[in-house]
């Protein structure tokens, strides 16, 4: 038996709006430890990992591990019926293949879960989520790839289009900067990755969920773009960098 009740449907709506373009169908794996969702995009170049912890719910009951295959667009459409501060309840009996109240059809999705090594990163940048979103959007009008370079001074975004290039440098802020403007950098050594902008732009749909975004990079490894939600936990997006031929 699974019974989840969330006082603020708005949060779940924002979560779904931020992932529904990247992934169409996915399994919500619910256990006593929380609800998680891990899925790759159709081109298998990007991946997202979502964790919703029990203490983010008003009521969380999960007697045994249950995996609910859902079409995220349908779930987002269904949740549109709820206003942001409505309470949303998700029930699922073990045997049934639907979740009640909206009778949404569940699907059997064979998803191959991937093991994400908890490796260290050469550079970790924390910056305002809205700034990162605006940079990705602006650069997306110029080129389709961005070279993100991190040094101890700051983080640089460079893109080259067929008619012009753009180079945005965000300097690390001094420790006294206010939280919402702070740009902090933890770095073992300078690192630079070339990434497809359309995926990064898709990741920034999660901007409404968090004030800050954490960007973790290691040479030759997928970049991690993480939005921490105050009580629910996190959404992490992974994107494989492009490699020169």
């Amino acid at each position: 038996m699974l019974e989840l009740r969330l006082t603020r449907a708005g949060l779940l709506k924002k979560v779904l709006e931020s992932i529904r373009d990247l992934v169409t169908d996915a399994n919500f794996d619910c256990a006593a430890t929380g609800c998680s969702l891990q899925a790759m995009d159709s081109s298998r170049v990007a991946m997202l990992s979502l964790l919703l912890r029990p203490d983010g719910f008003e009521h969380y009951r999960c007697d045994r591990n249950i995996s609910m295959g859902m079409n995220l667009a349908n779930m987002a459409r269904m949740l549109r019926c709820a206003s942001d501060d409505d309470t949303v309840t998700i029930n699922a009996d073990d045997a049934q293949d639907k979740i009640s109240d909206y009778e949404m059809k569940l699907m059997h999705i064979t998803s191959e879960n991937l093991e994400i090594p908890e490796a260290g990163y050469e550079a970790i940048v924390k910056m305002p989520a809205s700034l990162f979103a605006r940079i990705c959007k602006d650069l997306g009008t110029i080129g389709d790839t961005v070279m993100i370079s991190v040094t101890k001074e700051g983080i640089q975004f460079f893109t080259r289009g067929d008619i012009r290039t753009a180079n945005i440098f965000c300097r690390k802020t001094t420790p006294v900067a206010k939280e919402k403007e702070a740009i902090s950098i933890e770095m073992e050594k300078p690192v630079s990755l070339t990434l497809a902008l359309r995926y990064l732009i898709s990741f920034t749909k999660a901007t409404p969920l968090a004030k800050q975004v954490t960007i973790s990079m290691s040479y030759g490894r997928p970049i991690v773009v993480e939005y921490k939600m105050e009580i629910m936990d996190h959404i992490r997006f992974y994107l494989v960098p492009k490699v020169e031929e």
């Binding site: 170049v45 090594p117 494989v240």
Partner: peptide
Amino acid sequence: GSKQPMITSFFGKV
């Protein structure tokens, strides 16, 4: 030109 590898070549299947 640049190549775009897949994520499955970085993260093993569980």
